[in-house]
């Protein structure tokens, strides 16, 4: 089920119009690509890379959509789809590390040396993920804004486009959510 850049662009256009089926088709494609890229990072194939959410999403985007089809709206929607997958991948890695730490002995890090995560950061990430789950019950939109911006790397403007709200709303919701999340993380870590 290899999809051509044209096919991805078509699905993205569908996603932009709110076509749920297009999003459904897009998700496994994006996930597979990102999982593959993350796995490559892990297998030392690229010694000088860091697993950075934005870089990974961006790379997946360039691979799947290509530079020639570059379009800000497409990019925003692609990243929106990718944000949830990115969150899953990063938390998986963070939990992998956390488990080893608790298991005692040497900490085994599934990712390559260039990684910017520290153990503290892994537990912070896990705490963030858990706090986001709670926030989702309180305010799904805020939770989604954080997911898009933090895990998907979307800018304020892109987040606004994806959610169909104003830049100003994104900023204000982000500011409040940020305070709440930082407090919850500080309590958890």
């Amino acid at each position: 089920m290899e999809a051509s850049p044209g096919e991805i662009t078509r699905l993205l256009a569908g996603a932009q119009k709110g076509d749920a089926e297009a999003v459904q088709k897009l998700v496994p494609l994006v996930y597979g690509e990102m999982r593959r890229i993350a796995a490559q990072y892990m297998r030392l194939e690229r010694p000088d890379h860091t697993l950075q959410a934005t870089a990974l999403v961006h790379e997946a985007y360039l691979k799947m959509v290509g530079k020639s089809n570059f379009n800000w709206e497409n990019r925003a929607h692609f990243f929106a789809v990718a944000a949830r997958q990115m969150r899953t991948i990063l938390i998986d890695y963070a939990r992998g590390r956390g488990r080893d730490k608790r298991g005692g002995g040497q900490s085994k890090v599934p990712l390559d040396e260039g990684l910017v995560f520290s153990p503290e950061k892994s537990s912070e990430l896990i705490a963030l993920d858990e706090a986001l789950q709670r926030l989702e019950k309180l305010d799904p939109r805020q939770s989604r804004i954080v997911e898009l911006r933090f895990f998907g790397g979307l800018s304020v403007a892109e987040t606004a486009v994806v959610l169909g709200i104003s830049d100003r709303t994104v900023k204000r919701e982000w500011n409040v959510a940020r305070l709440w999340l930082h407090r919850e993380i500080a309590r958890a870590v």
Partner: peptide, 11 residues
């Protein structure tokens, strides 16, 4: 400043 400021991947 916390995790949301550090890796914040915006413009």
């Amino acid at each position: 400043t916390g995790i949301l400021d550090q890796t914040r991947a915006t413009e």
